[in-house]
Simulated scan of single mutants.
Amino acid sequence: MWRIHLSTDDIRRIRIAPDIDPLWELVHSLQLLDNGGPVIFGPWRRRVRLAGLARWGMLRHLSPPMGYFADFLTPATGTVDLRAGIEEVLRTPRPCLRSDLVTLHKQCPRHTGWARDLAAGDVQTLRALGANLIQYHEAHLKPSWAEIRSQVSEELARVRRILCGQGVDAMLASLGGHVHWEAPALVLRNKKTERDLYVDGRGIVIQPSFFALGDTSILDVPGEPFVLAYPIQHRLGWWDTHTEGTRLEAVIGKTRAEVLDCLANGDRTTTDLARVLDLSAATASEQTKALREAGLITSRRTGKSVLHALSPTGATLLGAS
Rank of each mutant, 00 (worst) to 15 (best):
T77N: 14
A315P: 01
R12D: 12
R247N: 08
L141W: 01
R98V: 01
A51E: 12
A282W: 13
F226V: 03
P22E: 00
S285M: 08
R13Q: 07
R49G: 11
R110G: 09
P225N: 05
N35H: 11
Q124H: 14
V123S: 15
R94D: 08
P93F: 02
L6K: 02
T112Y: 08
F226C: 05
T302I: 12
R49S: 12
A51W: 06
R94G: 03
I162L: 14
T243W: 09
E25N: 00
F72Q: 07
T313D: 12
G85M: 02
G52M: 13
C96G: 05
E258A: 15
R15G: 03
S150G: 07
L30A: 03
E249C: 08
D10M: 02
P38E: 08
Q135D: 15
G245L: 12
A128T: 07
P93I: 02
L26A: 01
Q207T: 00
R60A: 10
E258K: 09
L188N: 02
G203M: 02
A128N: 11
V187W: 03
M66N: 05
A185N: 09
A119L: 04
G36P: 03
D21R: 00
I204L: 14
E194Q: 10
V39Q: 08
L129V: 04
S280Y: 10
A294T: 03
T216M: 01
E87C: 08
I14G: 06
M58G: 06
P208S: 03
H61A: 15
T241V: 06
A183P: 06
D215L: 07
K191Q: 10
F69K: 02
L273W: 15
V221T: 14
R110A: 15
L317W: 12
H28Y: 02
S209I: 00
R149L: 01
P43C: 15
I206E: 05
L118Y: 14
R55V: 11
T216K: 01
E87L: 11
I14A: 05
T316Q: 15
T103S: 12
K254A: 13
A139N: 07
H111N: 15
D10S: 11
Y198N: 08
L213M: 11
R47L: 10
H5M: 07
G130Y: 03
L279W: 06
A294S: 13
W239G: 01
L118K: 05
A290E: 11
T79N: 07
L33T: 05
L263W: 09
R13W: 08
P64K: 03
A131R: 15
E155C: 06
G201E: 05
Q31I: 00
G314K: 02
R49A: 14
V159Y: 12
Y68M: 07
G176F: 13
F211S: 00
L263K: 02
L6S: 09
P65A: 13
S311C: 11
L118V: 05
I162M: 08
V306E: 04
L163Y: 12
V123T: 09
S311R: 04
P43W: 15
L219E: 06
E154I: 04
L32A: 14
A309N: 10
E249V: 01
T77V: 12
R49V: 15
D10H: 08
I206A: 02
D10L: 05
V89W: 07
A128K: 12
R46T: 14
